[in-house]
Nucleic acid binder design. Structure first.
Lengths: 203, 203, 203, 203
DNA sequence: CATGAATGAGAATTCATTCAT
DNA sequence: GATGAATGAATTCTCATTCAT
């Protein structure tokens, strides 16, 4: 293994350890000590790879967020098209949260502990959606909205996602979580489908 | 002023100082020292009124949350009825957040720093909505939903609120905030109005 | 009840509360708050009766010590005479400790937390013993010892008492405590009886 | 000096500083600040070596106790045998206390501030004595006692030691201390020698 | 006298970060 | 690059004592 590879491995260990600790205990108690211990390196080593603790925190959300996004898009691509794809995305998000409980924490605590990264993450997601919406509008699959309204719509859509995730998070048992997921998907379909379709059928 | 009144005043000073500090810097850096200093009392005095720091944190959300809720309901009561009232609520919430920027922080950081209080707050709001929904359904003003689906709907509605607030929070200038507010209200009207007003069942 | 009587009642409440708290939790955590609460008075009232916390601590040992001493002497007086009386005293002390577990604490922690009172208590006990010894020597019931040696003997006797009490204190069950007590009395009889009753001088 | 050696040195500094502070002012006012300052390290360094303050306290008695025990046994081994050795032990203990005034404090306050360590120390000493007694009994050098009585005897012997040490501790001047020591040894010889020898001469 | 709120000087403890090895 | 001991600022919390009511 070259010097460079070894460095990458160490860096990834720290990043993964960071995720694991934040997932388990939250940013607030994700100390360098815990992260370095879990990564199997000395405390000082941490600072060879990251400026400071905040620097790691700022990388956590992109690191995890992209993994989630890829997973979701992979699934969404399986859907026939348009609106169905959005519904698939919504469901895939909830599934992802159920299966990666810790990710929920990495994500929602980021607003507080890594606000810059969170803002970037939001912009990222929102911009992705803007493209999707533009295409749908161009192809006449939905109402035409001006840019501001499109952005508002996206934020509201993301809010629905996030709060359905919270609702699932509050549920105690696995079976309950799944039931909520199904009902939330149904509700989402109903709210979005009815309104955005401008009179046409869901496709 | 009687001794009891003075005690109440001191307690309120601490509570208000707590709100102010959290609003300005977040829970994480709301130290006893800052709160007590702002309240104009000695550090030790804090502990005459609150078991510990967490105890204050746990009161912040109810304290501020009820104030907001009352303000919103007061405004909503002005609306003719039903759906219009809900739109008024949504708008009032956004206005409240714009006018009380700090409240946004007290509210959304609570999920992390005062999880019990946050959960209680959510249950509170959700239950309030359940009643509203039941009445609307009983009076045939909206689709009949089973309890689980109603709850999902409520969470999604609250998510829309919250993320529209976040969108506003991200905006830099006051004028921009107002523009987003108006567009968000429009979007909300569109999403909710179209779907819930329809006479058909959910599929 | 006259003003003076009421004052005495309050003072006694505080003293008793002090004993109770020290007995239960030790001097170190016997705070004014706990003592005043248990006595049923306000914190400030404490300072109408005692200079400060130490002043109460300094009264605890005399207060409890005299009670014990009286009880022991009462029992010892029942013994025929001389040496038997001393054995009775020893046994009575152990019984007192068994029956008043808390007293053990008030007594032995006093050396640290109320050193002056402890010293006075020791002097008191030692002087009492000096008289007893002098009488025994005058009546030819025991060796004649010079004053220093008499004092040494007394301290050693008190040490035997104290450490037998500690041994009992270490025992977990009541039955075990009683068995230790009996064996300790036997041992004491053996050590003291054999040596002090002999007609020869110490060399 | 290797890193490991330096660490040991630091740890020992803290331990010695702990002893010194406790010896001078007692456990109650042996704050981390004082200990760390005396050891010449930062406060935080303390916690690199000890879990908390109690952890240091719990090591003080073993640390000092073993030193004393070794010193005493070393001296006792110089005595011809049996009973003489025990008298030498007693005298050596008193000398140790006279020469290491602080140790007395570390030892007797431990019952309160490091009860576990104190209990362990007592068990240790008591068990050591049990072996000594068993040998003496096996070799016919003293009365045969059943185990419980042997234990009682040991506690009483230790009590004599401890209270003779207290008596010395109370004395103001060095000369007085030495006089008490001599008289206490004489008294001890008398009490123990006479009774335990089962009719035979002291050997 | 009684009250109990206010005080503020400490105490223990944590932990991000540095730096000599 | 890796190490991990040292640092010290910052934080929470306690409690004896005071004093205005």
């Amino acid at each position: 293994m070259t010097r460079e590879e070894k460095a990458r491995v160490t860096r990834d260990s720290l990043l993964n350890a960071g995720c694991a600790v934040v997932a388990a205990e939250g940013y607030a108690s994700a100390s360098i000590a815990k992260i370095a211990d879990l990564a199997g390196v000395a405390h000082g080593t941490f600072y060879n790879y990251f400026e400071d603790r905040q620097a790691l925190f700022d990388e956590l959300l992109p690191y995890e967020g992209l993994r989630m996004r890829d997973r979701i898009e992979e699934i969404a691509r399986g859907a026939p098209s348009g609106m169905q794809r959005e519904f698939a995305r919504f469901e895939a998000f909830l599934n992802y949260v159920i299966e990666n409980e810790g990710f929920y924490r990495v994500l929602y605590e980021a607003e507080i502990f890594a606000p810059d990264a969170h803002r970037a993450h939001m912009d990222n997601i929102v911009n992705g959606y803007k493209g999707t919406l533009r295409r749908a509008m161009d192809e006449g699959r939905m109402h035409r909205l001006d840019p501001l309204q499109a952005e508002c719509l996206i934020y509201q859509i993301l809010g629905m996602r996030a709060y359905s995730a919270m609702q699932i998070h509050f549920a105690g048992e696995a079976a309950e979580k799944l039931a909520i997921r199904d009902a939330a998907v149904e509700t989402y379909r109903f709210l979005i489908g009815r309104s955005l379709l401008s009179g046409k059928d869901i496709r």
